[in-house]
């Protein structure tokens, strides 16, 4: 026998033995018996399963005898729906008195200012505080006539203010 041929055949037999071992394990797992009471549990699950809904039958008197009855019922439903829709549309014709109307714009160019005038914000002018006068000069000045400039304060009172340049 050729050595390579014998090696191949031994490999093949080894492969077969290995795969046989694998298949015997799988067969063992596949032949395991089902647990007791499996059928009963499945039957119980099937009985408790929700059933499909059933359609109510027509009452004896109202049961349509032929296709004409069904067609008449369908036509009546269509008539009622179309009539109702027509009634709503007829009441809401545009331009008719009493019809609903949306609010219009006051000015065609956009929003108006309602006659309001814009006034700019103004600042109070700066007020120079009264200078601390020398007591000697102040007494000298008290003898002389003093020019006062009367000006209104922010509170509206008349404030006497001495001007240093005019003291001499």
């Amino acid at each position: 026998m050729n050595p390579s041929t014998s090696n191949q055949s031994s490999n093949r037999s080894g492969n077969t033995a290995a795969s046989d071992a694998a298949e015997s394990t799988l067969r063992l797992v596949a032949s395991l018996s089902a647990p007791d009471g499996l059928e009963e549990r499945v039957q119980a699950a099937l009985k408790s399963a929700p059933r499909a809904g059933q359609i109510l039958a027509w009452p004896t008197l109202a049961r349509p005898v032929s296709g004409w009855g069904r067609a008449a019922a369908a036509a009546a439903i269509c008539f009622v729906v179309a009539g109702g829709g027509w009634g709503v549309v007829a009441r809401l014709q545009p331009g008719q008195a009493g019809s609903a109307k949306g609010p219009g714009l006051a000015s065609p160019a956009g929003l108006s200012s309602s006659g309001a005038m814009r006034t700019p914000q103004t600042l109070h002018r700066p007020v120079v505080p009264a200078a601390v006068a020398n007591p000697v000069i102040a007494t000298a000045q008290s003898a002389q006539p003093v020019h006062h400039r009367n000006k209104p304060s922010a509170a509206g009172k008349v404030v006497a203010q001495s001007i240093p340049g005019e003291a001499k």
Binding site: V29, S31, S33, E39, V42
Partner: peptide, 18 residues
């Protein structure tokens, strides 16, 4: 359906278990 359950439940169990 009950007949199917009693006939094939065990087979299906083994397939599922494998």
């Amino acid at each position: 359906l009950a007949a199917l359950v009693s006939q094939y439940a065990a087979t299906l169990y083994r397939v599922a278990y494998s």
